[in-house]
Design a protein around this nucleic acid. Structure first.
Lengths: 230, 230
DNA sequence: TTTAAAAACTGATATTTATCATAGTCTTAC
DNA sequence: GTAAGACTATGATAAATATCAGTTTTTAAA
């Protein structure tokens, strides 16, 4: 079985492409191009016109927005199954976010015609995309609330729990996805030094253990309590 | 012409209901119920199961989420044309937000069956809803970035400009939508006292003028500069 | 119109977070 | 293996924001 064909791709089950028909998938598969992206490399930039979407087969990308003062707010981490750029293609806008790989990635680029034509013809697909987007919108609402109601300490605790739940741990008990301190700061929206300070504090208190930039969770219970405000 | 019928309702042009067919609109119109909501009254609560959506004909509602510490973050102000509760109905979830009128409202309650059945049958409608939601998602991303990268002062300046652009001014030169200081604080995610202090400062500097809780914009240029970080 | 309640305001202070400076520690490319 | 550059770490300080306590003003109900 040719796993480079969308028809046979398991990843599809995680996203709205599962609502496509066999024929539609064949067309997508014929038009798509595979691409590997090394850690640190960009997939696309804020303001760029996207001619298609990126379906993530492996690895993780940060999606962020740069501010005039040089800070880069990470809005979302896109991982296996995620279709990046979908929002911009649907709204027919230039991208509102930049995407940069935070680990080596394997992605499929799907030209936007494949997507938009299926949106016109297959109501099941459209509905499936709509459901996905409804979920993303709730998640975004939650982030807004967290940003405004939780302290930096709580947000960092939450970020570590999120990383564990979504990307798991390696065999040594460290979080499988290692982010730089700067990226962690940009996820929770604080200064890099503040993030580092709080990470040190968590380590001293025995919530986590670290080795270089790697972080492992030691006391999930207390991290959770902190994140929830006890 | 009967303006209580959706077919003849102008408001429809502002939202995804414009993609409905004549027959679908008739069905919606037969199943809907009109309701007035006084300022301060709730439309629905966070966690509530919504049996339909609310189409706003007049007035404004705040959509917010309560945190354990008692703060209420306002995520969105819904106004004429907005279809409230759509996200929850599509995702088949209980509402993630509460809705409370901030001015006297007139809304139409549309049972969810009218919406979901049209979503199944009319791809144009589904696509239209999808486009709307793609826009809401970008707006939510923008709020996240503002929350984390701008100071409270900048966010309050922005809020006043937003209120002017979206709701206009009355004949006396005050913002047509008057929010309490507490609501303003909850929009920008700060303590009520902090918001009041900054509003006083804006007044002293001549950016705005006030009368009771009402606020009027005096120097839009400088407010804009402040909001953008100059 | 009076009056009680709610909302707006102000000051003092505490806490949180950012900024600047500098030192140590990892990587990575040669 | 080592040197340069990038990242992590920590201290000192400044700035932003929250909290608490109280006063004044506004609003709305009797």
């Amino acid at each position: 079985m040719d796993h480079s064909r969308c028809e046979n791709c398991i990843i599809r089950q995680f996203n709205s492409l599962r609502a496509m028909s066999k024929e539609e998938l064949k067309k997508v598969s014929d038009s798509k191009t595979m691409r590997t992206v090394k850690k640190g490399q960009p997939l696309f930039e804020e303001g760029e016109k996207l001619n298609g979407v990126y379906c993530v087969r492996a690895g993780v990308s940060k999606m962020s927005k740069l501010s005039p003062n040089g800070k880069d707010q990470i809005v979302k981490l896109a991982t296996k199954g995620e279709v990046m750029g979908q929002r911009s293609v649907i709204a027919e806008e230039h991208s509102n976010l930049s995407a940069v790989a935070v680990s080596d990635m394997e992605v499929c680029f799907i030209p936007k015609e494949s997507i938009t034509s299926t949106l016109q013809k297959n109501p099941n697909f459209t509905l499936e995309v709509l459901r996905h987007m409804a979920n993303e919108l709730r998640e975004a609402d939650d982030v807004i609330v967290n940003m405004s109601q939780k302290t930096v300490k709580q947000r960092i605790a939450e970020a570590f729990l999120y990383l564990k739940n979504n990307f798991g741990e390696d065999t040594d008990g460290f979080l499988a996805l290692t982010l730089s301190r700067e990226d962690i700061a940009n996820v929770v929206g604080t200064a890099t030094e503040s993030a580092i300070r709080i990470i040190s504090e968590f380590k001293k208190k025995g919530f986590i253990h670290t080795s270089g930039k790697r972080v492992g969770i030691q006391d999930e219970r207390r991290l959770k309590d902190l994140a929830e405000g006890f």
